[in-house]
Simulated scan of single mutants.
Amino acid sequence: MRASDPLARIPYLGSGLGYRRQIRDAIRAATDEIDFLEIVTEQFMGSTDKDGELAEICERFTVIPHGVGLSIGSAAPLDSDYLERVRRVSDRTGCPYYSEHLALTQVPGIDIGHLSPLWFTEPALACTIRNVRRVQDLLGKPLVLENVTYQFDIPEAQMSQAEFFGRLVDATDCGILLDVTNLHINSVNHHFDPIAFLAEMPVERIVQIHLAGGFWSDGILVDGHSEQVHPEVWELLAHLTGLVDLRGSILEHDDNFPDDPGVLFQQVARAREMISRGRARVQA
C-alpha cells in the first residue's frame, strides 16, 4: 500500500462491537474490553434527539458509522438529502473512514427493503465507481464496502465478484470491509471454496472485518447475527490474518442476546488476539 493511499492513513482500531441499544448498559460498562464501536448510521439520522446519545458514545469510544441505505450500486444518482445526513453523522463521529455495503437497496421509484447483490457487469461497475467517487469526495474520507450474502447468483454476469471488487478499488482507492461470516455463508450455500475466493480478492484493500453467528433454516445457512461465531468462521479468520494487516474487527449481534454479555466480549477478545498475532506475522 503506497504512502499516498488514503487507506494507509487509517489507524489500527482493534476489536470492537456493533452498538445495540438492547445492551447499551453493558457496553458502557465495558470500555476496557471494547476498542471501538460500530453504529448503524440510519439510527442517528434525521431529528436531533439522538445527538446526545451519539455524543456520549463518541466520548467513550472510537466510533465508525456503518450504513445500510446508500445503495452504492444504483444506476440512478444517489439521494443528495440522504448523503448530507450521512455526512453529518460521519463528521460528528470523526471517523477515519465510512463503511457501507456493496449492494443495491433502491431502484428508481422502489425501496427494495433489503441488501440486494449487484449484477457484476461493466455498466454496474461504472455506476458504482461514479457513486463511490461522489461519496468519498463529499465525506472527505475513504469509503469501505462490505460483501453481502445472496440467495442466488444473478445470471449473465460479466465478471466475478472478486474481479468486480478488484477493479472498483483500483479505480477509486476505496477499501473493503470483509464480512467473514458472509463469506462463509455464501461458500456453504453456493458451494465454493472461500480460501480460493480470498486468493482472487484484493485482500490488501481489506481494512476491517465483521464477525457474526447465523443459523440454519430449511437447509440454508442464514446470516442471523443472533448466535455465537461459528468455528468455521474463526478458521477462515485465522487464514485471513496471515494475508493482511487488518485495522479492526467488529462483532455483530442483533438478536437473541445472551443473558451474560461477557459471552460477546469473549468473542471480541478472541478476535483481538487473532488479529494481533496476524499483524505481527504480516509486519515481520
Rank of each mutant, 00 (worst) to 15 (best):
G278Q: 12
Q106S: 12
H184C: 15
D170V: 06
Y97D: 01
W234K: 01
R133C: 06
L236P: 10
R28S: 10
R24N: 02
G16W: 13
D25I: 01
V89E: 08
Q106N: 15
E146Y: 07
L183A: 15
A196R: 14
D49Y: 08
I112P: 02
R92P: 06
F120W: 15
A269T: 06
L221W: 04
E84T: 13
H253R: 10
T105R: 08
G278D: 14
D137Y: 00
P258E: 04
R9D: 05
R133F: 05
A280D: 04
G262T: 11
E273P: 01
G18K: 06
L211S: 07
D51Q: 15
D137N: 03
L243E: 00
H184E: 13
L178C: 07
H191C: 14
I23W: 05
G46R: 15
N131Y: 15
E84G: 09
V40Y: 14
S80Q: 09
G278R: 14
I176M: 05
L243Q: 05
I110M: 05
G175H: 01
G219R: 00
G140Q: 04
Y12G: 13
D193W: 07
V222E: 01
G219F: 00
W234D: 02
V148F: 12
I185S: 08
L240I: 00
N189P: 02
Q106L: 06
A126N: 13
F192T: 01
L115Y: 15
M274A: 11
S80C: 03
C58G: 09
Q22L: 06
R20I: 10
L240F: 00
L177C: 09
G175I: 05
V229K: 03
G94V: 11
D25F: 02
G278C: 15
D218W: 02
G278F: 10
T48G: 10
Q161W: 01
G213S: 02
L211P: 10
R130Y: 13
F120Q: 14
G67K: 11
D245S: 11
L83I: 03
A284N: 09
L168G: 02
I176V: 04
S217C: 06
R205T: 09
H191S: 12
I176S: 03
T128I: 10
L183F: 12
I110P: 04
I23T: 13
E252L: 08
E33S: 05
L115V: 11
V188C: 01
L104S: 12
V188I: 02
D91L: 15
G14Q: 05
N186P: 11
H191E: 15
D260C: 10
H253Y: 08
R272G: 02
R28L: 12
L139T: 09
R20N: 07
A271P: 12
G166N: 00
D254V: 09
R92S: 15
D260E: 10
D255L: 02
A280R: 12
H114D: 13
P194E: 00
Y98P: 06
Q283G: 06
A196Y: 07
E42N: 09
R88S: 12
